[in-house]
Design a protein around this nucleic acid. Structure first.
Length: 509
RNA sequence: GCGGUGGUAGUCUAGCUUGGUUAGGACACGAGCUUGCCAAGCUCGCAGCGCGGGUUCGAAUCCCGCCCACCGCACCA
C-alpha cells in the first residue's frame, strides 16, 4: 500500500514538474482547493472535453448552451440551493472559532441534532449548556453557512448573486427557449460545459475536491409517461457493474454485473434513461483509458441524495491514491427544477405533447460529469513504471504532445530538416514538438514521460531519401516512413486506424 | 473545522538538536564540446531557506501568527 501511494505521489510530482497541474496563486503561498492547468494539462483537459462533446453534442444530438457563472439570488432560491446548500455553524464568542453545530452537539451530548432549525439548535445548546469545544467559552447563535460563493451584482451591493454551484440551472432557466428550439421533440437534451463553484469548508485530496472546477452536464427532458431513450437498444447489451443501495445498507460490498437492459428489467435501475446513460458513461470512461474493472456505479442511499433527486447513481473510478472516486452522477431530478422555476418565476414551463394535447411538466434525467476528476484518474491509470523507465501510457489521441520531432545530431543540417518536418506536421494539425537538447535517448525519455505516443527522428538517411524513423512509445520499436506519408500515417496511428507494424520498414536496433 | 506531521533551487535532499557555513550535494534545465538511435561523458551556467512578525550584535536554525501540503477525524448536498 505504501509503495502504491509513493507511485501516485510520483505521478503527481511529474504532473507538476512537466506542466499538467500546478497549485494556483503559488507565488502568494497558494489557496487550498484551487489548481491551474499548465500547458500540457490544458490540452489534456480540452481533449477530454472534446471527447465528451463527441458523446453528447454529436452522439446524443443534444443542444449546447453557455450561460453565466454568476447567478442572481432568485434563481438559486428557486433551485433550492440557497436553503439546502448549507451547514449550520456556531461561533465561539470568546476564541472566535467556528464549528459545525451538528458536530459540537454530538461531541458534547452524543445526540444528533441533524435536521433541527437554527432556533431549535440554539435552544438545544442552551438547555444542555454546551460550551466551545476548544476554549470552553460561550457559544454564539447558530448560523447557516452556505457553501456557495456570494457576491454582489452591480455597484451599491443591492443585488445579491452567487457563483453557480452547478451549470444545470442555466439550462433549466432557458427551458422555454430550448423546448421551442427542440420543436416539440421529446426527449431532448441540453448540455453545458463550464466552471462550477463550491466554497468547501476544507478542500482536500488535491484536484479531487476543488472549490472551482469544470463540469459537463446534460439535462435530458422527457415525458414522465414515456421515460424511454430512442436508442436504448444500441446500448442495451453494454455491461455495467452496480453497487445497489440495498446492498450498501446491508453493509455488503456486493457488485452485480448486468447489462443495461437487465438493470432495467430487474428493476435495479428504475428508469431506462438512467440505465442508458450509465452505459454511455462507462463507454466514455473506457474511451479515456479507464479499465472496465475500475468502473462501477454506486446508487446513492436515500439520505445521501441531493434535495432535487429521486434516484442517483454515481459513476466511480478506482484510484490507488483515493480509492473509489465519484467522477459522474446520473440523477433523476424529476420535475423538481422546472416546477420550482415555474412557481418562483410565474412562467408557464409546461410542454404540450401528443395528439391529446396533454400538458406536462417535463421530468429530467441528468448525467453530470466532472472533468477534473476524470483527468486525475486518466493520469493515474496512465502512469507506468518499467524499471527505471517511467512514463504516461495515455491513450494516443489524448496525449497533449502527439509527436516529438528530433534531429539525431545537432549538425550537418539535421536540425533544419527536423524543424521542416515539425512545421509540416503542425500544418497538418498535429501537436508536434521539436527537441534537440541532450542525447537522443534522453529526448525519447522526456517525450515518454509526458505520454507522447510517437517520436520522429531525422538522421543522415533522411537527407538522402526523405525518410524518417517513427518510434512507438509503448514498445520503443521503430519503422522508417517517407516524410510525404508522415502526416497521414501519424494521424491514422493516433486514431488507432492502422497497425504500427504496417506503416513502414522496421528499423533494426 | 479538529488532532498529528512537515515546508531549503524545477525535483529530491544535507544543514536545524547546540544561532555565526560564500547554505552543500544529486538529478533536472540552459550553453558549448562530444554523441549515426534509447536518461553516456566533460566544461561552464541558471536557480533555494513558504509568508509575516518577534527574540538576538547576528535566524534556514529559537518563539508566535498565517498560508500550503500530507495522514487521521468530520464534511462531501
Amino acid at each position: 500500500m505504501l509503495e502504491l501511494k509513493d507511485k501516485s505521489e510520483e505521478m503527481m510530482e511529474l504532473a507538476r514538474r512537466r506542466g499538467f497541474i500546478w497549485p494556483s496563486f503559488e507565488i502568494y503561498g497558494g489557496v487550498g482547493g484551487f489548481y491551474d492547468f499548465g500547458p500540457l494539462g490544458s490540452v489534456l483537459k480540452n481533449k477530454i472535453i472534446q471527447k465528451w462533446r463527441e458523446f453528447y453534442l454529436v452522439g446524443e444530438n443534444f443542444f449546447e448552451i453557455d450561460s453565466p457563472s454568476v447567478m442572481p439570488e432568485e434563481v438559486l432560491k428557486a433551485s433550492g440551493h440557497v436553503d439546502h446548500f448549507v451547514d449550520a455553524m456556531v461561533e465561539c464568542k470568546k476564541c472566535g472559532n467556528s464549528f459545525k453545530a451538528v458536530d459540537v452537539a454530538r461531541e458534547a451530548t452524543g445526540k444528533d441534532i441533524e435536521g433541527m432549525k437554527e432556533a431549535e439548535m440554539d435552544e438545544f445548546f442552551a438547555k444542555n449548556k454546551v460550551k466551545c469545544p476548544d476554549c470552553g467559552g460561550e457559544l454564539g447563535k447558530v448560523f447557516l453557512f452556505n457553501s456557495m460563493f456570494r457576491t454582489f451584482i452591480g455597484p451599491g451591493s443591492q443585488r445579491v448573486g452567487y457563483l453557480r454551484p452547478e451549470t444545470a440551472q442555466g439550462i433549466f432557466i432557458d427551458f422555454k427557449r430550448l423546448q421551442r428550439y427542440a420543436r416539440g421533440r421529446l426527449p431532448f437534451g441540453a448540455i453545458q460545459i463550464g466552471k462550477g463553484y463550491r466554497n468547501e469548508i476544507s478542500p482536500r485530496q488535491g484536484i479531487i475536491r476543488l472549490r472551482e472546477f469544470t463540469m459537463a452536464e446534460a439535462e435530458v427532458f422527457f415525458d414522465p409517461e414515456n421515460p424511454h431513450h430512442p436508442n436504448f437498444s444500441s446500448l442495451a447489451d453494454e455491461k455495467i457493474r452496480l453497487w445497489r443501495a440495498e446492498d450498501q445498507i446491508k453493509g455488503e460490498e456486493k457488485i452485480v454485473e448486468v447489462t443495461a437492459r437487465e438493470a432495467v428489467e430487474k428493476n435495479y435501475i428504475h428508469n431506462e434513461l438512467i440505465a442508458y446513460y450509465a452505459a454511455l458513461t462507462k463507454k466514455f470512461l473506457m474511451e479515456l483509458g479507464i479499465p472496465y474493472e475500475h468502473i462501477r456505479f454506486r446508487e446513492q442511499k436515500p439520505w445521501q441524495r441531493a434535495h432535487y433527486s429521486s434516484e442517483t447513481w454515481d459513476a466511480e473510478v478506482y484510484t490507488k491514491r483515493f480509492g473509489w472516486v465519484e467522477v459522474a452522477g446520473i440523477a433523476n431530478r424529476t420535475d423538481y427544477d422546472l416546477s420550482r422555476h415555474a412557481k418562483f418565476s410565474g412562467e408557464d414551463l409546461t410542454m404540450t405533447v401528443g395528439e391529446s394535447g396533454r400538458k406536462i411538466i417535463c421530468h429530467v434525467v441528468e448525467p453530470s460529469y466532472g472533468i477534473d476528476r476524470p483527468l486525475y484518474c486518466v493520469l493515474e491509470h496512465a502512469f507506468v513504471e518499467e524499471g527505471e523507465r517511467k512514463y504516461l501510457r495515455l491513450k494516443k489521441w489524448l496525449a497533449p504532445v502527439e509527436v516529438g520531432v528530433f534531429p539525431l545530431l545537432k549538425r550537418d543540417g539535421l536540425p533544419e530538416k527536423a524543424i521542416q518536418v515539425q512545421n509540416l506536421l503542425r500544418s497538418r494539425g498535429l501537436l508536434a514538438d521539436y527537441d534537440d537538447s541532450g542525447s537522443i535517448g534522453r529526448r525519447y525519455a522526456r517525450a515518454d514521460e509526458i505520454g507522447t505516443p510517437y517520436c520522429v527522428t531525422v538522421d543522415h538517411q533522411t537527407l538522402e531519401d526523405d525518410t524518417v524513423t517513427v518510434r512507438d512509445r509503448d514498445t520503443t520499436k521503430q519503422v522508417r516512413v517517407s516524410i510525404e506519408k508522415l502526416p497521414d500515417v501519424l494521424t491514422s496511428l493516433l486514431h488507432d486506424q492502422i497497425n504500427f507494424e504496417n506503416v513502414g520498414t522496421p528499423v533494426k536496433k
